[in-house]
Structures are given as structure tokens and as C-alpha cells.
């Protein structure tokens, strides 16, 4: 096809004719802005921003396009012009599509109950480009999104309509993902400095970490005087006895104190984050993380409950889930 430039020129001229024509007209959001979709979005993104919950919640601004999506429903708003343009590209072998750019400006927050309407225009169609995926054309649309008739944001979106460069590989040439040699477990690939610091395990505290591996949080108990102790040590500070056994923590506790770490950043921890000093129901204290609670919502006295979390293929840590009331 590279040997037929004039053919492309003529084709490109036909494509260019669509610039400036509407792509979607009087589109209506399938649902008003609503809490369930916001919550599903936040769950998927792992976004715990408290601005997106509660009575004064706003929708995540980056959801802007989501409110315009048709899902599996028909798209009555799509114009004939846009359908024709995409049809031309499909027929010329550029049937595959991938989104490449997204530019969004947010003029005002969207809140549950906002009714969404939108209009879209074909801003530009590129000349033919050679890409890693294959040759194709970039199509850029701009959408104005309104809430209750008021402009709330604009959304410029670029897709590549392309002819796939490679035939799909023969399945038997593909690496078997079940073969451990071929498995790309991201946790296996973490550089050492990107992983959490390892627990410091020696003969005096190995029993604690063996308990963690079994999802048990074990407290030492002096068999001489019965005093519970944490951290683990070979002898009792109350009576000096070297004899001890263990009791399993119930898992209930409260935040005795906490620190919110802001600076300096460490590769494996994303500040700000809270580190708690947890007082277990049994009376001993342990440093740990308070999870499930935004860093700025951790408070002294907050009830917490033990859980075990895996951080990489080697590391499981006892952490504490905040119990909000």
C-alpha cells in the first residue's frame, strides 16, 4: 500500500471532508450521575478519595466520558456522518480501533442527580500514519458535556483506526501463561528497592513470623510470671525468666497512636500514609498499618481489627482494618 500514494491522497481527501461535522447530536446520558456508578468506578480504580463519598460527594472528574457511554445499548445520538466515516475506515481494512489520547477539561463538578447531555464534533482526521499496531488514521472528536444544560466539561478524544500489522500469532507459538517460566507475575518482578523492607527475623522472633505465615498473631507469655510481652525477646523484663509460651491475639485492638508519613517518599510506600501503634485487646502494642481508612481519618482510640495482607510473594504482614462507626 505504501506504493500507492495517490490512492491514499484521494482517500484522505474523502476522510477530511468529515472534519467539522457532528459526531453525536443531542446525546443524553443513559443514567443521571449516580452514587452506584461512582462507587463502582472508585472500586475499580482503587480510588479512596473521600470527596467521592458522603452527602456532598462529587463524581470523579475523570468519569466525564463514562456518563456519555452507551454501554451495550443503541447509540441514537451518533450521527450518520460519524457512522459513514468509521464505515469508510472499516471497509478500507482499518477495522481495528484503539484510543490514543484523551484530553478533558472540567468546568464544574458533577454530582449525583445531574442529568447529562452532550454533543460531539469530528475535529480532525489525520493523514495516513504508520504505527506499531499497523497503518491507520487518527480521528479526533470533541465532546461538550452538559449537566442540567450547563457546560460541565469538554472531552477531546482521539482514536486510531488501523489495519492490524501482524496476523495473530499461532496459538501454539504463544508462550503458555500457565508455565511458571512464562508467567509475568508483577510481584516477582519488583526490584528490591521497590519492595517493603523485610521483617528482621532471627531466632528470638522467628516464631512470631511463623505465626504470621499461618495468619496468627502470637504474643509471648512468660511462663514464670504470666506477663504478656511484645516485641518478642528471649526473656521477660518483669521477672527475667527465659521460659515462655505464646497466646494468639484475638485480633481486636485500638489505635494507641499514629503517624502520617509525608516525607521523604520511599519507592514502595506512597505518601501520605498512616502508620499506627496498635494496642491489642490483650494489652500489648504493635506497630502496623491501619487499612481501609483514609490516612487523614485515622484517630487515637479508633477500634481496629486484625487482618493479614500479602504485599509480595514473600511478604505477608499483620495489618489492622479500621472499624468505622
Amino acid at each position: 500500500m505504501n506504493g500507492e500514494p495517490e490512492v491514499h491522497e484521494e482517500f484522505e481527501a474523502r476522510l477530511k471532508a468529515y472534519e467539522g461535522r457532528p459526531a453525536a447530536a443531542t446525546g443524553v446520558g443513559r443514567d443521571p450521575v449516580n452514587e452506584p456508578m461512582i462507587r463502582h468506578w472508585c472500586e475499580a480504580m482503587g480510588d479512596t478519595n473521600p470527596a467521592y463519598t458522603g452527602p456532598n460527594a462529587i463524581a470523579p472528574p475523570t468519569m466525564l466520558q463514562a456518563w456519555t457511554m452507551a454501554g451495550l445499548s443503541r447509540r441514537p445520538e451518533r450521527t450518520a456522518a460519524y457512522d459513514e466515516l468509521l464505515g469508510l475506515l472499516d471497509e478500507s481494512g482499518h477495522h481495528a480501533v484503539v484510543a490514543t489520547d484523551c484530553e478533558q477539561e472540567y468546568l464544574r463538578p458533577l454530582r449525583p442527580g445531574d442529568e447529562i447531555t452532550f454533543d460531539s464534533v469530528i475535529e480532525s482526521v489525520s493523514e495516513r500514519k504508520t504505527t506499531k499496531l499497523g497503518p491507520g488514521y487518527f480521528v479526533t472528536t470533541r465532546t461538550d458535556i452538559r449537566a442540567g444544560g450547563e457546560l460541565a466539561g469538554t472531552h477531546r478524544f482521539r482514536i486510531l483506526k488501523y489495519a492490524p500489522a501482524r496476523r495473530p500469532k499461532d496459538p501454539k507459538d504463544r508462550k503458555d501463561p500457565k508455565d511458571p517460566k512464562n508467567r509475568k507475575d508483577p510481584k516477582d518482578r519488583k526490584a528490591p528497592e521497590e519492595r517493603r523492607p523485610r521483617p528482621v527475623v532471627n531466632r528470638d522472633n522467628a516464631g512470631f513470623w511463623e505465626g504470621v505465615a499461618r495468619h496468627e498473631l502470637l504474643i509471648q507469655r512468660c511462663t514464670g510470671c504470666g506477663t504478656l510481652r511484645f516485641p518478642w525477646l528471649p526473656g521477660c523484663n518483669s521477672c527475667g525468666s527465659l521460659e515462655w509460651d505464646t497466646v494468639e491475639a484475638s485480633g481486636e485492638g485500638t489505635v494507641y497512636s499514629y503517624v502520617v508519613m509525608h516525607h521523604p517518599p520511599f519507592p514502595t510506600f506512597a505518601p501520605p500514609y498512616a502508620v499506627g501503634l496498635i494496642e491489642l485487646a490483650e494489652g500489648v502494642r504493635i506497630i502496623s498499618n491501619v487499612v481501609g481508612v483514609p490516612y487523614d481519618k485515622v484517630r487515637i482510640g479508633m477500634p481496629v481489627r486484625l487482618e493479614f495482607r500479602r504485599y509480595d510473594e514473600e511478604l505477608v504482614l499483620p495489618v489492622f482494618q479500621g472499624v468505622t462507626r
Binding site: 478519595n49 472528574p61 475523570t62 489520547d101 506512597a270
Partner: peptide, 21 residues
Amino acid sequence: GRYITDHFGPRAELRRVAIRL
């Protein structure tokens, strides 16, 4: 968007996000 608001906190307001894949 989450990366930015995680860092700047819940009071931060996104005004524009432009990305290229």
C-alpha cells in the same frame, strides 16, 4: 486522576487531564 488526587488530597480539584497512550 487518582494518582494526582491521592497525592494532593481530597481538597484538590482536577481541572484538566490530558493523556496519550
